[in-house]
């Protein structure tokens, strides 16, 4: 069964197209990483899935319902982000209690264990927490709610490295114990890479790739060698990224759809491209990158 289905989904905000003709499906009981640069439309997409925002056109189904104003979607979906708002007249402990009233599958034992593991003070007020602490508390809510669709939008904002690692471990363990559909958006793919089963890469509001993480690891290949040789060799390949190293060498990333041995024979070094680097290369708007900004300036 597909938990999420989008067909031609678009969202306009003023004259900006935050989402543009986005189509994909997410199967149940998978962890999908939603990857994209800032402003790619990740947050917009997740808010539409959670029923917070409505789509401008296209079709969106969550649990086979239109999420906007659907109680079923709201009861079975939780979106954790740094904008979560909690009453400032309730203490953290009272908030956990309130959450348990609303979410039928709420796991209070897990919530309490995480609460004390992360050294929260029962009497604290959410509003007064530091950014990292807020994120951590929100994540506790997200894990303990055990919603069939659990969405984390940049969940680790403001957290220090140790807490991040703890969170990812907790998420994985909890997922294995209670499989459900999880979407986690991040621009640090390397951080969540080990966790993910699928990657949905979006750029400028459009779907770019939707692959399993293993396929993504194989998706492209890096070539390094003398610029002249590499360039000549590239003419029929789909170049994802290229940069020059020093004066006469180049590094080029191309789609991994050919025999590596031929390249090696020409003295070109062949290396795998990490999904995280790949996602950066894929979503660069134009050929080249930040280096080109500087090299063009040197030309003048």
């Amino acid at each position: 069964m597909n938990v999420v289905e989008c067909k031609g989904l678009a969202k306009h905000q003023g004259s900006v197209k935050a989402l543009d003709d986005l189509s994909f499906t997410i199967k149940e009981d998978t962890i999908t990483g939603l990857i994209g640069r800032n402003g790619a439309g990740k947050t917009t997409l997740l808010k539409i899935l959670a029923g917070y925002w409505y789509e401008s056109s296209g079709e969106v189904r969550v649990f086979d319902e239109h999420p906007f104003n659907s109680l079923t979607v709201s009861a079975n979906t939780i979106l954790i982000d740094d904008q979560m708002s909690f009453s400032n007249s309730l203490t953290l402990q009272e908030l956990l209690q309130e959450a348990s009233n609303f979410y039928m599958n709420w796991d209070m034992e897990l919530a309490q264990r995480l609460f004390s593991y992360f050294n929260f003070d029962s009497k604290q007020i959410h509003e007064n927490l530091s950014k990292g602490k807020k994120s951590t508390f929100n994540i506790i809510i997200g894990l303990a709610a055990k919603c069939a669709l659990t969405i984390f939008d940049e969940p680790t904002t403001g957290m220090d490295a140790a807490v991040r690692k703890d969170f990812y471990r907790a998420l994985l363990k909890d997922y294995l114990a209670h499989p459900r559909t999880i979407i986690i958006s991040s621009h640090h793919l390397d951080e969540v890479e080990d966790l993910l089963e699928d990657v949905l890469l979006i750029n400028e509001g459009k779907r770019y790739l939707h692959l399993s993480i293993d396929d993504l690891k194989e998706y492209a290949i890096g070539l390094r060698g003398k610029s002249a040789i590499v360039r000549q060799w590239l003419n029929d390949k789909e170049v994802i990224h290229s940069q020059s190293i020093g004066t006469d060498r180049s590094y080029v990333v191309v789609k991994n759809d050919f025999d590596h041995d031929r390249a090696t024979r020409l003295g070109i070094e062949v290396s795998p491209v990490s999904p995280s680097d790949l996602s950066v290369y894929l979503t660069n708007q134009k050929q080249g990158g930040i280096d080109d900004v500087f090299s063009k300036r040197e030309f003048r």
């Binding site: 009453s87 400032n88 007249s89 309730l90 203490t91 009272e94 007020i125």
Partner: peptide, 12 residues
């Protein structure tokens, strides 16, 4: 600007 808060829960 924000939620009314004159006193905390218990005191209120």
């Amino acid at each position: 600007n924000y939620r009314v808060k004159i006193l905390s829960g218990q005191k209120a």
